[in-house]
Computed example of a mutant assay.
Amino acid sequence: MKKRSGLSIAVKLIFILSLCVLIYSVVQILKAPAEARHALNDWDKKREEAVSLQVLEEETPLPAGMVNLSGEKSISRTDYTGGEVIGEIYFPRLDKRVAILEGTERPQLKKGAGHYEGSAAIGAIGNSVLAGHRDTVFRGLGNLEVHDLIELETAEGKFIYEVTGSLIVDGDERGAIKQSDTPVLTLITCYPFSYVGSAPDRYLLSASLLRQEPLSREAE
């Protein structure tokens, strides 16, 4: 009886193990197509991101002729050099910090927001113009509202601007960004934000200088 009982238990164990192996094999067979589809979906997503990035790099957020600052009496306190990092811009509402480089060509816009060379120095009297790509450094720009703050830092100090409004213009419009007798900031990017391909319009966000603060020394 004991031998038969032991044999019965062994048979049951073998059956259970075989059943587990069978179930595992079936599960793996069923999972394979799903995992394959998941891998393809991952590739499709990466491909779309790569194509989108290529399109963005080909876009020109600040078209030639859109800035008309002739006759502006800006006070440029700093002689910026093309391509150099001149500061940073921080959007409290977006909790986003971006580097600012001098120039609005492709190399600068790949790294951060570009300061238009012909515009006023940041914090100075006049119109300080910054350009950036809509899906990278200026992602979420359309979420900013009137009275939101924008903080900029350069070697000259920290400058707090307040958003005053926004404007959407055709990408071929000339003279849309004008001179100012007071310290103002204009941020420009391509629009619509979710447009597939080279966006036809431009989104202009304007802000006025509230105050200047000294740079704070970071705790060592």
Score class of each variant (00 low, 15 high):
residue 121 A to F: 04
residue 211 R to M: 14
residue 167 L to M: 08
residue 141 L to S: 06
residue 195 Y to N: 11
residue 182 T to H: 06
residue 126 G to V: 04
residue 151 E to A: 10
residue 211 R to T: 15
residue 174 R to G: 00
residue 188 I to Y: 12
residue 196 V to E: 15
residue 143 N to P: 00
residue 129 V to G: 08
residue 146 V to M: 11
residue 185 L to W: 02
residue 122 I to L: 13
residue 150 I to Q: 05
residue 173 E to C: 00
residue 208 S to Y: 06
residue 137 V to K: 11
residue 144 L to H: 07
residue 149 L to V: 08
residue 144 L to R: 04
residue 113 A to D: 07
residue 128 S to G: 10
residue 208 S to H: 10
residue 141 L to I: 14
residue 207 A to I: 05
residue 185 L to G: 09
residue 139 R to Q: 14
residue 183 P to G: 04
residue 163 V to L: 06
residue 161 Y to G: 02
residue 185 L to F: 05
residue 142 G to S: 15
residue 183 P to Y: 00
residue 142 G to P: 05
residue 197 G to S: 14
residue 156 E to V: 02
residue 174 R to K: 09
residue 167 L to E: 14
residue 208 S to L: 09
residue 160 I to F: 04
residue 112 G to E: 05
residue 131 A to L: 03
residue 175 G to D: 01
residue 209 L to R: 03
residue 164 T to S: 11
residue 205 L to P: 07
residue 179 Q to R: 11
residue 149 L to I: 11
residue 213 E to S: 11
residue 164 T to I: 08
residue 192 P to D: 14
residue 186 T to W: 00
residue 183 P to R: 03
residue 132 G to E: 03
residue 124 A to I: 08
residue 200 P to D: 13
residue 206 S to P: 09
residue 213 E to F: 05
residue 185 L to M: 07
residue 210 L to N: 12
residue 142 G to I: 09
residue 129 V to M: 01
residue 198 S to V: 15
residue 179 Q to S: 13
residue 161 Y to W: 00
residue 199 A to K: 04
residue 207 A to M: 07
residue 192 P to W: 14
residue 190 C to Q: 12
residue 158 K to L: 10
residue 208 S to V: 15
residue 108 Q to F: 01
residue 162 E to D: 04
